[in-house]
Nucleic acid binder design. Sequence first.
DNA 1: CGTCAAGGAGATATCGACATTATTGACCGA
DNA 2: TCGGTCAATAATGTCGATATCTCCTTGACG
Lengths: 236, 236
Amino acid sequence: MSEPNSALPSLTQDAYQRLRALLLFGRVAPGAKLKITDLITSLDVNMSAVREALARLTAEGLVIAEPQKGFRASLLTEVDLRQLTDARIPIEEMCIRRAIDAGDLAWEQAIVSALHGLTRTQHYGEDGRVTSEWAEAHDQLHRAFVSACDNPWLLRMRETLAAQGDRYRWFAAAASRPDRDLDDEHRCIADAFIDRDADRAVRLMSEHIRFTAETLLKHGFFKTSTRTASPIKRQR
Amino acid sequence: MSEPNSALPSLTQDAYQRLRALLLFGRVAPGAKLKITDLITSLDVNMSAVREALARLTAEGLVIAEPQKGFRASLLTEVDLRQLTDARIPIEEMCIRRAIDAGDLAWEQAIVSALHGLTRTQHYGEDGRVTSEWAEAHDQLHRAFVSACDNPWLLRMRETLAAQGDRYRWFAAAASRPDRDLDDEHRCIADAFIDRDADRAVRLMSEHIRFTAETLLKHGFFKTSTRTASPIKRQR
DNA sequence: CGTCAAGGAGATATCGACATTATTGACCGA
DNA sequence: TCGGTCAATAATGTCGATATCTCCTTGACG
């Protein structure tokens, strides 16, 4: 028989990754109730696996746990997006400078490869939404930029904050597409990295992140105050 | 990580906090196997609660999960402590500057209160180890310093890294006590905060953190390379 | 004597049942 | 008609049993 173990290391781990992808990709409304019963059928695993996945996502900040009241997707608010952006930019800067400092040829190749992959990936699907493939390629490019950073803790912090940012971006991107040439932006950023121009890379990346946040805020997708608890969220 | 809930009807949450305290307080050797069976008897909860707690701690980086092989406490190594310190100091700086900028009188009072509490708490127990009360008071003081920071994400990052640092500190502190006047150090830092001298506070705090790390490294508690998997860890 | 395979003990991963709590909705009284 | 109490319902929290896997031991064979 083949090797199912290497492909499926653990069922609960798989459930965690799939649920995480659902959250990051904007498939779950902010504040939506995450009923364990529904998740059992949706993810096709048992209760323990669902609870473990929710526990991990709680620690990541993507899910909030209310004792005796279950779990719900974390809220997306204007102030939180501003705070997130303010925290993210300096941490991203630290990763960038270290990556440019320590990057080798293989790192440059990874950037070029990821950039090419992104430009050749379909951006919008037939439904007008950003495709999951593009979102994944976009993440990979940004991860490639900082992959040469020699400090795992900084990378971990960056990853956590980037995941939160993705949640905002992909949730809003379901409703409107920005009028920017994102391919060109990414190419300029990549050039700065390849040129080992840390200051330029930091500046472009900061603008890239901040402009995205500003665009989302301008559209007013995210309510400012405490939203009424949306009763149920169900999708197919 | 989260503030203590007034009501703790959640048994699994309680198990998580207790297990986390065990790890942070240095009661568990780095790399030690965390047998679920033992934890069930040790924490007096069922299996699901243990697994949920371990899942959260895995997301925090205090525990590493090896699929089909269980969980073990994260490793403590020289290089990791250096990287951790390098990542921690600039993030702590950001929190400090924002706290000093936004802090009000109540914040100053919290610092004074926490400082007084620390100086009046027994440092070493009869067994020569740092008391858990002192460790808790120490955490509270450092948390009070930055409590006025208006950015929850930066505070969250700081909390995560500080927890890792605690793990190094308290594990090593079980073996040797530093020849420093820690009370005086903390008082000087507190003065800088009360004086709203951000540069001084940052400088003192950076020295405080870095000196602690250097001391631990000098004693050579933590092995440099991959340690042999210690077979079992059991304590009472 | 070394190597490898088969077996067994122990630990982990998975699963569904049961108890507890929160929420909904109806009924009753003012 | 509105408000409040209480029962019915549904979801969550808790728990132990079972299946699967890993690792160590043992024994036979080369």
